[in-house]
């Protein structure tokens, strides 16, 4: 990436936030239409970015189009601010937009994420941008775009219901653990991107603005604030999220999504928060209250 940015043949530098103004306007119009039709995938003229497609180019274009000099940007991957691609994307914006960056969910005005929704509740005015590899929730069932587009046009989502019910017949439960489809505002079936289903409830009725950017597939969609997002389920098999027996080994949280860390070659492992900012904040609070952190599992 930095190699591309250092290319000097162009003479002068790049435009603020890399994209040219016409591209930003096109994406901004797309973002407004996306808010107006919650959950509907708006096609947009995605550009080729100096980051591999599949690595967050959709999120990158959304962020580049909303970002301004007064923003504070947070970038996470797997919930962590220090994962390689998060570091790389944060560096990109620091270079091309000279924007302030933060690891604090609370202080960020824009959060670009891959695979997680932050644990800390978001506030009005905050913008959450998800990176999306495959925006079409029906794609694994129906590979053809011309067919899935019709299914969305007429809200024909029976195929998805049948697929989930086949899971129940076979495994006794819906065997989907991430990228769990939801109906937005009672109308459009939406892929929440590959976040664990643990995070699905956070999408619904969130005070913040949420956008999904799929660069390779050239689609943008949104869930406005205070909008319903119902994770598909059945009366006799209601939607449920992951839970863990223990708590985070570092901060003691029992309400966060935990990553399993293998600590040796004898099968020992521990569980820690995937959301690094949440974990650090929680540890600091716990330390301040000088309470003893709970036992490890």
């Amino acid at each position: 990436m930095s190699g591309t940015m250092n290319t000097d043949l162009g003479g002068d530098g790049y435009n603020f936030a890399f994209l040219d103004e016409q591209t930003k306007r096109m994406i901004r119009r797309t973002l407004l239409k996306a808010l107006s039709i919650p959950g509907y995938q708006v096609p947009f003229g995605g550009r080729e970015m100096p980051l591999a497609s599949g690595w967050g180019t959709g999120g990158l274009q959304v962020t580049a189009s909303v970002l301004g000099p007064n923003d504070r940007l947070k970038v996470i991957d797997q919930g962590a601010d220090d994962t390689t691609n998060a570091v790389s994307i944060r560096r990109f914006f620091h270079t091309v937009a000279n924007v302030a960056v933060t690891e604090s969910t609370e202080q960020a005005t824009i959060i670009q994420t891959r695979h997680r929704v932050p644990e800390a509740p978001l506030k009005e005015g905050q913008i959450l941008v998800y990176q999306v590899p495959e925006p079409e929730p029906l794609r694994r069932l129906i590979p053809r775009e011309s067919e899935t587009r019709k299914m969305h046009a007429y809200a024909e989502y029976g195929t998805m219901q049948v697929t989930l019910y086949e899971d129940i017949a076979r495994f006794g439960r819906i065997a989907r653990t991430y990228d769990y489809p939801a109906i937005v505002n009672g109308r459009f079936l939406m892929s929440p991107s590959p976040i664990p289903k643990f995070d699905n409830p956070k999408i619904a009725n969130n005070p913040a603005m949420q956008f999904w950017g799929a660069g390779r597939e050239k689609r943008i969609y949104a869930v406005p604030p205070y909008t319903t997002a119902h994770s598909l389920d059945f009366d006799d098999h209601p939607f449920e999220v992951q839970s863990w027996k223990g708590c985070c080994a570092l901060c003691g949280s029992t309400m966060s999504y935990l990553d399993e860390v293998i600590t040796d070659d004898k099968g020992s492992r521990m569980f820690v928060c995937s959301d690094t900012d949440f974990c650090t904040t929680h540890q600091a609070k716990a330390a301040a209250q000088t309470k003893v952190v709970g036992e490890h599992s």
Binding site: A52, S53, G54, W55, Q78, P133, Y178, P196, E260, S274
Partner: peptide, 21 residues
């Protein structure tokens, strides 16, 4: 460019989803 991007993106951490699976 698109195909190579998606295929190589599997190198990125996926441990949150892997934990779920």
């Amino acid at each position: 460019v698109e195909g190579n991007g998606l295929i190589t993106h599997y190198k990125l951490p996926h441990y949150v989803d892997f934990q779920a699976e």
